[in-house]
Amino acid sequence: MKITQEQYDILNSKKGLYALLQNEKLDSEKAIRFAKYEKRLARLQEEMIKLLNWTVENKKKIVVIFEGRDAAGKGGAIRRISENLNPRQRRVVALPKPDEVEVDQWYFQRYIKQLPAAGEIVFFDRSWYNRAVVEPVNGFCTEEDYRIFMGQVNDFEEMLVSSGFYLLKLYFSISKEEQERRFAEIKDSPLKKWKYSAVDEKALDLWDQYTEYKEKMFARTNSDFAPWKVIKANRKSKARIEAMEYILDKIPYHVKDSDALKHEDID
């Protein structure tokens, strides 16, 4: 492979050399992609720190929802986005299934408890939208539960936005083949197989049902005040960068580095 001067400079950097040495067989193309991704990620992470500082100083309340199919990379994206942020001023919420008390509460009640205070960002690794897709597909709620949720969710979100919350909704989309590949990787990994749940086990067989409810969710809840951002996530690195770029673009923090927010191709 003949490389350009720019590619040589990337490979000759600390990140480039690290990427080259990661594999037994030297792969310059892969190393260049990784180094470009890491460089881009670091620049956007600096902007995320500025966004959080602005949030704290101005007592803003930011909610970022991550939804998507199982194994779509939501958790990994949240980790990369939040890893350099002060943990006192940002939280990641990944709620387990409702307990005996929560089952009989108004559905949104336990999520309201997790909303950010003034000067805080909260990232939801799945959210109240469980009731829009995961629960009806797997029979975890009744048709009436689903109908009530779909009738209330837009009003609920409009109340949040009109009360001063910034609400961003991201959906990570992957292909069926990629989901199958990731499930196989998770099951084969001693460090990751704990992630593979009974719901995951049925996800491929229920692919079409998930698609049906996902499309109904978009049609009903893609509102002007809280639109969905669909991120193609077959490539984890690109999905993480796109998610971070979207958050930084939509929140009006000061002072933004316009050069940092310009899209860069990391391929």
Rank of each mutant, 00 (worst) to 15 (best):
N138H: 15
E143F: 12
E143N: 14
E144V: 06
D145R: 08
D145M: 11
Y146W: 09
Y146T: 00
I148Q: 11
M150Q: 14
G151C: 06
V153L: 01
D155R: 14
D155W: 11
D155N: 13
D155A: 15
V161H: 05
V161I: 12
V161S: 01
S162Y: 09
G164L: 13
F165E: 09
L167N: 01
L168T: 01
L168V: 07
Y171D: 03
Y171S: 03
F172L: 06
I174Y: 01
Q179C: 06
E180P: 04
R182C: 03
E185L: 14
E185P: 04
I186Q: 02
D188I: 03
P190A: 14
P190K: 14
P190M: 12
K192F: 02
K193H: 15
K193S: 15
K195V: 03
Y196F: 15
S197G: 09
D200W: 07
K202A: 02
K202Q: 10
A203D: 09
L206Y: 07
W207R: 05
W207C: 06
D208I: 03
D208E: 14
Y210H: 02
T211I: 08
E215M: 09
M217E: 01
M217S: 06
F218M: 04
F218V: 02
F218R: 01
A219S: 10
A219H: 07
R220W: 10
R220C: 06
